[in-house]
Write a protein that binds this DNA or RNA. Structure first.
Lengths: 377, 377
DNA sequence: CTGAAAGCGCTTACAG
DNA sequence: CTGAAAGCGCTTACAG
């Protein structure tokens, strides 16, 4: 037996304060029990490779010595597998987590992945410290949510040749893409307004610089594949009805002050209906309309997108295009999982949407019943 | 030069389909450039250790060969540092992410950590696959959010001797705990009801099995340190006013059907006021009261806890105890960060709360103005 | 400014 | 059922 005098060798040079106990490794236990390191390894990782009795003896010794199990970092290197999946969000987690839709997606992905034994690591954009998580974090694969192909994190991931699933992204060769059918959803939303009789319609978007302008070919250029899909759908329905909408947009990826300002400008001479790229943007429009005394839906119909949990709670309840965010998260997780299993069957997927008509839309100029009609007796 | 014939050695046995390119490592590049592996390592990790010229040459070669940088798993083992911090939530991420307060916390932590160059990995409870993330994932430390000390994940973390910060947890020797001052917040909430003149008060909690019972000593036993703190505060204020509240609770950690059922039972013979352990629970009470035609706040005052984003949006707007969730997240992240820097100065912290009085509380039996008083003309 | 040596802690075939 | 050997890909002192 090579076991040193004491059962647990202590760290620190003689005379120094011994702050912690020396690292207990497979070797410590092997020497203690009198077997080879790899038998100890087997005791933990391949129980069928040794006798029940030996295994118990080893596990007992491990516990006595305070061994918490094989070191995950060493194991990851040896196995070539970490058990971790990365998630890169449009914006840093700090921003993304203010959006219920993004949160719902992360939630669903984390759940599906957990069922398969994988943990999710949130990959923020590269910081000042020179740390680029997408490049520097050990992981087995990644899910990229609603990012432009040019995103730095995305590029880093691809350089590493990691299995990647793109969600609501631009089609990229060799990268499966999961997303909803934005065009069809948007088409339904616009058609709903057309059916109600609206002709003066504004479209409110992000990732597109447009200050109450008309949709000239050039202007419809957006960095977001999601917005692009929705634009397609809206324009198709409106085009069929010979309606030329007004475009209100910001170059930013989400709602910012530029967009708010342009929405205000739009409300100076309001259309009769607005198609917004998200429920959050729709609420922004509704709040600003309300502040000016413009009645929704009597004077202004508003349609959102997503069916954010808020949509049903606000007043008037928001007409919107529902997407099944849980299904999207599951689909993304499953796609990545099958990529990890090297089942090449993984392909892109378009999930369906559904128009949900609530109280924020009505016929133009309708003396529609709002929730506060008592004064009209 | 030991460089093989072609610039990029291919993998796969002769005759097999060559699916991928052989792994490019430090060695590949070293041989290609004609320097040692460690000079290549230095080019990436310690730029000051070699001439600018050599470095450029190495980096160029690396790019040509498709080398994405030092392998994170190998680096983690060699450096003893992963750049990853774990987060264990009360419930699995799937459940936790339905709660805006928990989401806000994760958001704040992820943000603070990102600033310091760390990424956050969500640690789910151990699954069927035998995978226990808290034991099997490589990380440098962890934040434990609102977990009972007996939580399996917590125990696994401690066995690994990882730096841990406890958030809203039970005090544990050697583990700094960050949390709000639950007792004081709850005290203020209860005192507010006392000041309004209420005497028939119910307390709605989780993690405590109580079916409209009186708070006997035994019954006040809860597995949640957070609930325990709030109970203390409520009971102290009520005790000073000689009020004995009714206890409505579920053994579960959150809101479940048991709790809903017991709330219904409470409303059969309603008190004049309710103290709820969270805003979500308060909304549950309000909705159920509304369904029965019990007016809030005229017939029933309701006080929540947290100041969930929803609290201000619902109608009537909810009186509640505000906690600064961003501050809590930052504090937790900073505490862990300083633990990682081995600044032993890290200690526990109690963050302040503030009572926010809105429209869901009024004097008992008050013919208070609700939002629908028109009928009373 | 550059390199030879040792090591991080584990696992994977392969023998016996 | 058990072990000796090689290796995962990098970094950390330490020489020169």
């Amino acid at each position: 037996m090579l076991t040193p005098a004491g059962p647990i060798p202590l760290s620190g040079t003689m005379g120094e304060e011994v702050v912690g106990v020396a690292r207990v490794t497979l070797k410590t236990i092997a020497e203690h029990v009198g077997v080879s390191r790899m038998t100890v390894s087997n005791a933990f990782s391949r129980p069928d490779q040794l006798s029940e009795d030996l295994r118990t003896r080893i596990l007992t010794a491990a516990e006595e010595l305070g061994y918490a199990g094989p070191d995950p970092a060493a194991r990851a290197l040896a196995r070539g597998r970490t058990g971790v999946i990365g998630m890169v969000l449009t914006n840093s987690p700090r921003d993304a987590f203010t959006d219920d839709v993004a949160v719902g997606f992360v939630r669903a992905v984390a759940g599906s992945l957990a069922d398969a034994g994988y943990s999710l690591v949130l990959l923020h954009a590269s910081g000042k410290n020179g740390v680029v998580p997408a490049r520097d974090i050990a992981m087995d694969g990644a899910i990229v949510y609603s990012c432009a192909p040019a995103t730095a994190a995305f590029a880093a991931l691809r350089e590493r040749h990691l299995p990647i699933v793109n969600v609501e992204g631009a089609p990229l060769p060799g990268v499966p893409d999961i997303g909803i059918d934005n065009a069809t959803g948007a088409y339904q939303a616009a058609q709903h307004l057309v059916d109600l009789g609206h002709t003066r319609i504004a479209i409110v978007v992000s990732a597109l610089d447009a200050d109450n302008s008309s949709p000239s070919e050039a202007a419809v250029d957006t960095a977001s594949p999601t917005i692009a899909g929705r634009m397609d759908g809206w324009m198709r329905a409106l085009g069929q009805a010979d309606i030329v909408p007004t475009l209100v947009g910001t170059p930013a990826l989400g709602i910012d002050d530029i967009l708010r300002e342009r929405i205000d400008r739009m409300l100076d001479d309001p259309p009769t209906a607005v198609l917004a790229f998200s429920d959050l943007a729709a609420l922004e429009v509704m709040e600003r309309a309300k502040a000016r005394g413009i009645l929704v839906p009597e004077q202004l119909s508003v349609v959102g997108f997503d069916d954010n949990p808020l949509a049903a709670r606000v007043s008037p309840a928001l007409t919107t295009v529902r997407q099944d965010i849980d299904a999207k998260g599951d689909a993304a997780a499953q796609a990545l999982l099958s990529l990890l299993r090297e089942e090449e069957a993984t392909s892109s997927q378009r999930l369906p949407t559904a128009l949900v008509i609530r109280a924020s839309t009505a016929q133009p100029g309708a003396a529609g019943r709002s929730e506060k009609t008592s004064s009209r007796t």
